[in-house]
Nucleic acid binder design. Structure first.
Length: 140
DNA sequence: GCCAACGTTGGC
DNA sequence: GCCAACGTTGGC
């Protein structure tokens, strides 16, 4: 069981919209090979954090992988091979208290998080220890 | 709004 | 295959 982190600009697609969706939603639009490869490794039912970049800059909720990686329907160019893929995710529950980036940065147990060291990667792995730590900080 | 970090593109 | 130029992301 691996853990993940999904980044989204709330301007584009926010946690509230994800919740309002009430079910699985394609995590489309990822155009980065590392992020795609992470999605390919996801298994059904695995959990991830939902992070708001730019506005908020905090982890706000927990999502579940609801469909394995499949071709990204927004990446279709006639005559070209589809290289971009996405999983589907659905909202599970919000953190009772969002965990902001600046707090993560000053927490020694979280100093190796990808979010701290490669903030531009939009789909990231999270270690078991980091997962447990942030859950607790978030009041779950 | 600025800029650092990173990824991609394209000339050689 | 290298690397400079460029575009994008995202924190500040």
């Amino acid at each position: 069981m691996a853990f993940w982190l999904f980044k989204s600009e709330p301007d584009t697609w926010s946690w509230d919209q994800q919740v309002a969706k009430g079910g699985p939603e394609e995590w489309h639009g990822v155009r980065n090979y590392q992020a795609r490869n992470n999605m390919r490794q996801m298994k059904l039912g695995e959990l991830g954090f939902y992070y708001h970049s730019n506005i908020g800059k905090e982890i706000v909720g927990i999502v579940r992988v609801a469909a394995l990686a499949h071709p990204d329907s927004t990446a279709f160019i006639p005559g070209e091979k589809i290289v971009w893929e996405c999983v589907d995710i659905e909202a599970v529950e919000p953190l009772k208290m969002p965990v902001p980036l600046d707090v993560i940065k000053v927490t020694p147990a979280l100093k190796d998080m990808v979010l701290v060291n490669n903030s531009r990667l939009s789909v990231q792995p999270v270690s078991d220890a980091e997962w447990a730590h942030i859950r607790k900080m978030g009041g779950l």
